[in-house]
Every structure is written in structure tokens, then in C-alpha cells.
Amino acid sequence: MTTSPALATRFGLPDGVEACLFDLDGVLTRTATVHAAAWKEMFDAFLRARAEQSGEAFVAFDPDHDYEAYVDGMPRADGTRSFLASRGIDLPEGSDDDAPGSATVAGLGNLKNEIVVRRIREDGVAVYDGSVEYVRAVRAGGLRTAVVSSSANTADVLRVTGIEDLFDARIDAGVARERNLRGKPAPDTFLAGAAALDVPARKAAVFEDALAGVEAGHAGGFAVVVGVDRSDQAEALRAHGADVVVADLSDLLDR
């Protein structure tokens, strides 16, 4: 399948773009807040117990600054290590079957995922209507689409929200683990998404709300990296590699 330049420019994209690679949390779905709350619940429990044992002051996880600076858009283990390092904490890696909440990188990550699954089950997941409108529009225009997410729950979220049929390919945490792909801010998963659509990076667009994600898009040599500003960080998105920043993907339909 090919896409004419005339079609591509209708979607606020450069001439020659044939495919769109969408992050999930914060771009397509409102699960970024679910993840931020889950990180906070997990880290606060760990930090409180650590403070009680050591006698040090308890400093809570900040769901705004800490989430954006250290964990947003990253694979679970990388985000866990990143935040712990910011507090000067070094834990053993552990293994995938560590009990949730164990004092290992894997154990804390397992607890975080357990909390996310619980919150999704109890509260459900909402989509960004403007993003879904945009995905439908680009598909109607002949562009191919893929979801590229660091989440292990991507398939479940797509199914729960009823948008799984809008994507030709899915690269998520499970695929990344199977193929030994580096997580964002490395470009590996986005490159895998483009390859799954049989489109070179230079003819694909990346859509991201996370700083690590726009870094990944910039590093991968894609045609354009669209930053989606959901939390008043437009300048930071540009500084990390976004070529275009919008408040919502529907804004691109007017360009």
C-alpha cells in the first residue's frame, strides 16, 4: 500500500509519510494517570517501609515531577531503576517470579503491575476521543497504524477500550522482551513497529506524550515526532526531540 503526499499533508504530517506509530498511555488512552497513581502507591509503600527501618525521613513519590522525570514511557524495570537511582537506592534485580513488593527491581515492578491491573479492572479505561478520531482519519486516508507501548497490558487495554481493530501491528512489553528490544528512550520498539508495517523509519510518524518516547522517536530517524502535551510540558517535549507539539491529535486534522 502506498500513500500520496496529498493524503499525508491532510493529517499535519510531512509529505511521504505512510505509517503512524502511536504510544498508548497518554496518547490514545487516559491510562497515564492510572500508571502514575500505581507508581506512587507502589513506591510510597516501599519508601515508607524503608524509612521506618532506617529512621530516615519519608519522602513520597511525586506523581507529577517524579513520574515525568524518571518513569513515564519507560519499561517497568527501567522506570523502577531510574527512580530508585534518583533517591540513591540500589536494589538487586531479582527475577520475574519475585513476589510483588519484594525489595528487588522485579519485585517492585511486579507490585506496580498488579496495582495497574487492579485499577483498570475496577475503574476501566477511557480513550482520548480526539486521538481515536485521528487514527480513524489516517486509516481512512490509507496510512498504516501501529501501537508501540512499554506497557505489559497493551493488548488488554486495547480490547477493553474497543480500539484494537484500529491497528495493523502491536509492539508492547511482551514483544520487546521476546525480541530483546531496548526500551524507550532507545528507538528499538518504534523501529520494530515500522518494520512490522513494512515501512522505513523515514516514512513513519511517531506520536508520543512521554519525554523518553519523543527521545526514542528522535533517535530513530523518523519522518516526524509529534509530541502530545497532556501535562503542560510543551517546551520539554520539544527539547527532547518533538518536531511538532499539539494538545490533542485532533488538532492535526485542521492543519
Rank of each mutant, 00 (worst) to 15 (best):
R182I: 06
R159S: 13
G174A: 09
E178L: 14
N180S: 15
A155M: 07
L191E: 15
A169S: 12
D198L: 12
A155W: 02
L197W: 00
R177N: 09
L191D: 11
R182M: 13
V160T: 12
E178S: 14
F167R: 09
A186Y: 13
L181W: 12
P185C: 11
G174R: 08
D165P: 05
D156Y: 01
R170G: 05
L158A: 05
D156H: 03
P200E: 04
E164T: 07
P185A: 09
D188Q: 12
A173Q: 13
F167M: 12
R179H: 14
G183K: 00
P187T: 11
T161Y: 02
T189V: 12
T189N: 10
V157A: 00
R159L: 11
K184E: 07
G183F: 04
A169R: 01
A201K: 05
E164K: 10
T189P: 02
D188R: 04
L181R: 10
A196Q: 09
F167H: 10
A152T: 06
R170D: 13
R177E: 15
T161D: 11
I163M: 06
E164W: 06
A186T: 09
T161V: 06
R159N: 10
T154I: 01
T161N: 07
R170E: 15
A194F: 06
F190T: 00
A195R: 11
D188G: 13
R179D: 14
T161E: 08
A194G: 08
V175P: 07
P200G: 02
R177W: 00
A155F: 02
F167Q: 12
D188K: 05
L197C: 05
R179C: 11
R179M: 15
L181I: 15
L191T: 14
K184F: 12
T154L: 03
I171W: 00
R177L: 13
G174Q: 11
G174E: 14
G193C: 09
A194L: 08
A186N: 08
K184Y: 09
I171N: 03
P200N: 04
D168V: 03
S151N: 03
L197Y: 04
T154C: 02
R159E: 15
P187G: 06
A152M: 07
N153M: 08
A201R: 04
G193D: 12
D198Y: 01
L158E: 06
E164F: 01
L197T: 00
R177T: 14
N153R: 00
P200H: 01
V175K: 04
V157W: 00
I171R: 03
V199A: 07
F190W: 05
S151I: 01
A176Y: 01
R177A: 15
R182T: 11
K184N: 06
P187R: 00
N180A: 15
A176D: 10
D156A: 13
R182C: 07
